[in-house]
Design a protein around this nucleic acid. Structure first.
Length: 390
DNA sequence: TCTGGGGTCCTAGGACCC
DNA sequence: TCTGGGGTCCTAGGACCC
């Protein structure tokens, strides 16, 4: 029951330590050594990242800021600077790319690397990890933790075991034994809901799942989840490191300080989200064939979505917004709403772009050109410019 | 304590077609 | 007149991850 049978793969999971908070402490010496919370300051803000000094107080990601500040009143709250984090992330990914082209970013602050066959260049896996950590520290003055294993799941699990600033190698050939004592919550894809279901049928540790019968497991929790955790618990994960994975959707959403209701109040917010999505599409050189609208109602924290295909692929906000407003007709707009979002899906690379003549009518397929010109103006003169109303 | 914003993947039910 | 069966696509919701 080894990990993956044929050939030993060497997968590394690189995970930056308290990424956003660490960047803030790096850039502002007065924050160093102190509990720092990166997150929204407003009434409905949550913790995005807590520095290691803040964590002993019980502060962690996704916690409402109001609660975090009750737990740690002396914490210094810093609003997120996503642009800066994205730039540092690009530096980190570039460093990783110096070691292998097989880099699969998972988010701004973590990535998988397939280093199979690289021993000749970098030595044993642990030496690879050391070299990577050194290179990241030199380039960014930030620390990373690294997990080393024979597949993605194990590598990801491992990077978390010696955080921060550590390396964990899952002993090859003894993977299942290594993870057996860990709680089921460590299985990738098992969250609070699934953990509760599994505990109700008597499974508490990964070892418990190893001993469970596969068919029984699938009957109890469904085939999808059953097969998935049956394999993971046995330290098997066939998913390969995919450096070419493309985005499937691009969205923008906002939680409002105060609830709104009614079409007249919702539309301007939705328009703004469509503009952000469209701009992001153009920056990525993608066009969308579908639009989704998302509303979250205050009452019961209920989420509703509606989606539809577009007649023609689009990368401009007018087309997205036109379809989005149609979708609003299928939603209840009179209940108090706390979040409004838009997303584009069914993405593919935008074909070559033609020049738009000065007096041409901006036909739907070319509206993107108009807005792309606005993008360029915005780049030159800053972000204060709004789209024309037409 | 009252729940962000960016995503991915899975599932169930209905429409539609042969 | 008491109602097939499968395959595929689409939609909405939900769990999960960082």
């Amino acid at each position: 029951m080894g990990a993956d049978s044929e050939r030993r793969r060497i997968v590394l999971h690189v995970d930056m330590d308290a990424f956003y908070a660490a960047i803030e402490q790096r850039d502002d010496p007065s924050l160093r050594g102190k509990p720092v919370i990166v997150g929204g300051r407003n009434r409905r803000g949550v913790v995005s990242t807590a520095s290691y000094e803040a964590r002993p107080f019980g502060v962690h990601s996704a916690m409402p800021m109001s609660r975090a500040l009750r737990l740690c009143p002396q914490a210094l709250v810093v609003p997120p600077r996503m642009g800066v984090y994205a730039a540092v992330s690009a530096e980190v990914m570039a460093v990783l790319g110096d070691f292998t082209p097989l880099v699969e970013p998972l988010s701004l602050d973590e990535a998988f690397l397939d280093m199979t066959g690289c021993e000749g260049l970098f030595g044993a896996p642990r030496q690879m990890a050391e070299a990577i950590r050194r290179a990241i520290a030199e380039k960014t003055r930030l620390t990373a933790s690294v997990g080393i294993a024979a597949n993605k799941f194990l590598a990801k699990l491992a990077s978390d075991l010696n955080k921060p600033d550590g390396i964990t190698e899952v002993p090859y050939g003894r993977e299942a034994e290594f993870i057996a004592p860990l709680p089921i919550r460590r299985l990738w894809g098992v969250g609070p809901k699934s953990a509760e279901r599994l505990e109700r049928i008597g499974l508490r540790t990964i070892g418990d799942v190893q001993r469970a019968d596969r068919a029984w497991l699938c009957r109890r929790v469904g085939a999808g989840l059953g097969e998935h955790i049956h394999a993971l618990a046995r330290a098997q994960d066939p998913r390969v490191v995919d450096a070419a994975r493309g985005r499937k959707s691009i969205g923008s959403e906002v939680t409002l300080d105060d609830d709104i209701r009614g079409r007249a109040a919702i539309e301007p917010v939705l328009r703004r989200q469509c503009e952000r999505v469209a701009r992001s599409l153009r920056e990525s050189g993608l066009e969308a064939r579908g639009v989704r609208v998302k509303l979250r109602y205050s009452e019961g924290f209920r989420l509703a979505t509606r989606q539809a295909a577009l007649d023609t692929p689009a990368e401009d906000s007018r087309t997205l917004f036109a379809r989005a407003t149609e979708l609003l007709e299928r939603l209840d707009l009179e209940q108090p709403i706390r979040l409004v979002g838009a997303a584009a899906f069914d993405l593919r690379p935008a074909p070559g772009r033609s020049q738009l003549g000065l007096f041409d009518d901006p036909a739907p397929a070319r509206r993107g050109e108009l807005e792309r010109a606005m993008d360029r103006i915005r780049e030159r003169f800053g972000d204060k410019i709004d789209y024309a109303d037409s």
